[in-house]
């Protein structure tokens, strides 16, 4: 039997496949890929809606929720969800009632929530490992967490795929969405809810700090490659999956932080695309650049 991989030198093949023989890595890879797919699909909406900062805010704001849930013996998804959506509610409430600009309000609120989480961790002694929440614990994921992550991820993914046309319209033209009677307020909160839930799912993989990368970078990368939304979604998923594969593999051989390697792969992929994308890349743009009309060629 000849597999396509057989053209690779035996040494390289062994190097590629060796990590997969480790049970804990297979599991890590499985969870990582599932989370990557959900985050990638959501990231398309986040980048098009201009919600990157909102993703950052929600991901940080879930910390006190996770700590409290652990302390009370509740599913951590529940705590994270309440605080994720709650933070957005607080942001909206302050924004509507004050002259402070939205990005400032976001900055104030999410750091406040995050700090509350730090204080709770240090006082409650809940057995929560701060390091795991902040930076992920992909290699030490438990069966219970695995199941929870998988359920959340599949639920979010189904809703995103089934309602993608309404969500897309909501991102593109909320005024039209409203004028044909779509519940734009509910779509807004639907997207926020999906964001909070996805953050919870991704928490295990890359941790709170780097979740925002999963929620933004694949969408941004894909956005540079196509002008069609369905293709953008597929490309985002492909880039996220590739990054997880490369990241987990790198972290095995470099013995370096898994979350760090995954996100770094994403970032490098983005930079590569930014430079080389066929139409929207920097090189392509440079070639297309028209001569400025008001600057006639210099004559000696």
């Amino acid at each position: 039997m000849t597999s396509p991989l057989s053209v690779l030198p035996a040494g390289l093949l062994a190097m590629l496949l060796e990590p997969l023989q480790q049970g804990f890595l297979q599991r890590a890879l499985g969870v990582g890929l599932l989370v990557a797919v959900v985050c990638a699909v959501l990231s398309c909406f986040m980048t098009l809606k201009g919600w990157a900062l909102m993703g950052d805010a929600v991901s940080h704001a879930v910390l006190p929720g996770v700590v409290l849930a652990y302390a009370l013996g509740l599913p951590f998804a529940l705590g994270a969800f309440v605080f994720g959506v709650g933070s957005v509610g607080v942001i909206g409430w302050i924004r509507q009632r004050s002259r402070v600009k939205e990005d400032t309000v976001i900055g104030v609120v999410f750091t406040g929530f995050f700090a509350l989480g730090l204080v709770l961790i240090s006082k409650l002694r809940s057995g929560v490992d701060l390091g795991h929440i902040l930076f992920g614990n992909l290699l030490g994921i438990s069966d219970g967490d695995l199941l929870q992550t998988a359920l959340i991820a599949l639920a979010v993914l189904s809703v995103l795929l089934l309602r993608r046309r309404d969500l897309l319209l909501f991102c593109f033209d909320p005024a039209h969405a409203r004028s044909i009677g779509l519940p734009t307020g509910r779509l807004h909160y639907l997207l926020l809810t999906l964001l909070s839930l996805t953050t919870v799912a991704a928490l295990q993989t890359v941790g709170i700090i780097l979740v925002v990368a999963m929620l933004v970078t694949p969408g941004a990368t894909a956005y540079l490659l196509t002008d069609r939304f369905d293709r953008m979604t597929l490309l985002a998923v492909a880039s996220a999956v590739l990054s997880v594969l490369v990241g987990v593999w790198l972290s095995y051989w470099l013995d370096a932080s898994t979350a760090g390697c995954i996100v770094l792969s994403q970032t490098l992929l983005f930079l590569l695309v930014l430079l080389l994308a066929p139409r929207h890349g920097l090189l392509a743009r440079h070639r297309q650049l028209p001569l400025p009309l008001d600057a006639p060629p210099q004559r000696s």
Partner: peptide, 10 residues
Amino acid sequence: DQVDWQFPIR
């Protein structure tokens, strides 16, 4: 000016 003309839509 209320439309995002870069939006990936046909």
